[in-house]
Design a protein around this nucleic acid. Structure first.
Lengths: 349, 349
DNA sequence: GCTCGATATGGGATCGATCCCATAAGCTGA
DNA sequence: TCAGCTTATGGGATCGATCCCATATCGAGC
């Protein structure tokens, strides 16, 4: 009668400490090796023994220690995900989609909301390295993350934005085409003073949306007033202030193309404050379709990014990379659709 | 000249494998023990030695293996978080808040979106146990999770909903009071046919919101028509169908209290479809204030839950519990405020 | 001179699971 | 009868970091 545990423990699921495989093996009367084979299903184990071990594990409430397993196997079953702002519905849907896909593949997800800060981003990447994650999906805010993780031999996929073009995989959307499309639509309606409200213009997202906007003007041979390109920053309220200035100015635009959902919200609110009627006095188009755009009246026409598809593409790309680390780097570009609503009309006469 | 690595490796940050503490120690000409002490800062190390070791670690791009460390220390630096639906802004803000707080405390967050499925929830809990997380924060959909994790001696905090009252810590909001308050407001405006559109009525959230609704009727001595309590399920479109039936029926309500933001959205869309004017023909109040409610016209009056405060309270509760596992179980209840907007008015004459 | 304490370092054991290898039994076929 | 194969099991070694303990040196105090 081997003992040593607390006296009178009635519940087998009530150990002072958690059960280890050694205890499972002892309970089943086999060695740790056999117990391990029985539970993982790798290697020879006689049928009755396998069942005895499984039964013992169940009784003891045994849950294998993932740390120990991964340490031995030098590979973990989790992926790291790094997004800019979880409270933005776009990133939330992206994260949700990635979480679901990861679970399907029996991986767990480490998620960090870096709040758009490069410092936090790199810090989180270091934590991922320490945890030896199998791979990382990131919506980058600097070139540092991907290069650091690549140096550390950890597969990375950049999503939405791309900083390390050619150096690591990426899944992005066709920003330029979509931006050109909606801008062209506004031009075709007769608008000439079309403002672009944007956050930044150096990363792929901003750069390409800007490029599409400019390309549409060029194709229509319409001169472009550079003062209509407004850099409005990240914060909703700051952006709202900028939008207020733009719309309330002496020579306001007749249409606005907002480069993301936060900026569209800012423009919408600013227009409401100023009592500017949409679409009679101002046409509005957004990049990134989120629920409120189909709830307000008039509904806001928006370029729809399928965040779920984006997440799925990213994770499938990541697992391809994990499987074949030496395969050539790939950039996947998803095309976009436009959700046509009622926020556009010809400019006021 | 000890060697063995790939020939001609020029970049010190380009190892075939990742550097271990053994290699750092060798590079600095000390033992592993000393290197460990130098890096963790625990125990005696002479100043020059400490600097030599740190320098060697930097040069080699050394990142300690969290698995190995936690295996040895029998404690991990990560927490598990389990939410019902990341694409719902309420859970997204909650997760975002928890992520930020965890990072501040040098913990990483494992996040799972269980999609409201009890099966997935338990599965995720098992993964958390396997990873030996320091604690778990969960918006539970069954009593199983908390009891399982508690049995496994893992600190749990239930947030938003409470299943294991008295058995584990919880952070919830004062659902009953808030529900009674807004219902009373509608009654005071003269409404008698006030519908409650709700998802479930057995968990704390649903039960208490229902109780508050009923209490308001009782206090006002107004009889309550049970057919006005509509169970509309989880899905937006299904809920929209239910709302459509309710509002389009022969004896429609003059006011609706929607028990969460998804249901409010469904009611809002259904009213729009049917051309029912808010607030002239129908007053609407929501539980859980989300951005679109302040963007649509009229704005929707809503009970505001501060998801950020909820997350902060949950995580501080969790760390208290981690520090003192034997402390008495606590339930924290946060009070709520009402965002008064324009979606309510006296009933049509 | 010797003990005592503080400073400083290294050697091995340890955490829990896996996996290579040794061993052995049972069976087939030459 | 024995080699050669399959089936089945157990005994260490291993992953990487930590930490207890042994050891060593130095200076101070008696």
């Amino acid at each position: 009668m081997k003992s040593g545990v607390a006296p009178g423990s009635s519940d087998p699921l009530d150990p002072g400490r958690r059960a280890t495989i050694r205890e499972v093996a002892e309970a089943a009367g086999v060695s740790r090796s056999t117990a391990s084979r029985a539970l993982t299903g790798r290697g020879y184990v006689a049928q009755p023994v396998r069942e005895r071990v499984r039964e013992a594990a169940r009784t003891l409430g045994y849950v294998p220690d993932a740390m120990a397993r991964h340490l031995r196997q030098q590979a973990s079953q989790s992926i790291g995900v790094l997004v800019s702002d979880l409270s933005n519905p776009f990133y939330a849907r992206l994260a949700s989609s990635i979480s679901q896909q990861a679970r399907k593949r029996q991986y767990t997800m480490m998620l960090v909301d870096d709040g758009g800060s490069p410092g936090v981003e790199v810090e989180a990447a270091e934590a991922f390295v320490a945890l030896r994650v199998a791979g990382v999906i990131v919506t980058p805010v600097s070139a540092e993350v991907s290069s650091y993780l690549t140096r550390q031999r950890i597969p990375v996929v950049e999503v939405d934005r791309q900083f390390a073009a050619g150096a690591c995989d990426a899944v992005i959307v066709d920003n330029e085409n979509a931006a050109r499309g909606v801008t062209a639509r506004l031009l075709a309606l007769g608008h000439r003073r079309i403002a672009l409200v944007i956050d930044e213009m150096h990363w792929t997202t901003g750069r390409d949306r800007l490029a599409g906007y400019q390309a549409a003007f060029a194709a229509a041979r319409v001169p472009l007033d550079p003062s209509l390109i407004v850099s409005a920053g990240w914060d909703v309220s700051a952006a709202q202030h900028e939008a207020h200035k733009l719309l309330g100015g002496s020579e306001p635009p007749t249409a606005v193309f907002a480069a993301n959902n936060v900026l569209a919200e800012a423009v919408w609110r600013a227009a409401a404050e100023l009592g500017i009627g949409i679409p009679e006095q101002l046409s509005l188009v957004s990049f990134d379709d989120v629920p409120w755009m189909s709830m307000v009246r008039p509904g806001v026409t928006a370029v729809a990014q399928d965040a779920v598809a984006l997440g799925e593409a990213a994770i499938s790309q990541l697992f391809d990379r994990i499987q074949s680390p030496a395969a050539p780097v790939r950039t996947v570009m998803l095309s976009l659709t436009v959700s046509e609503r009622e926020s556009t009309a010809p400019p006021p006469a």
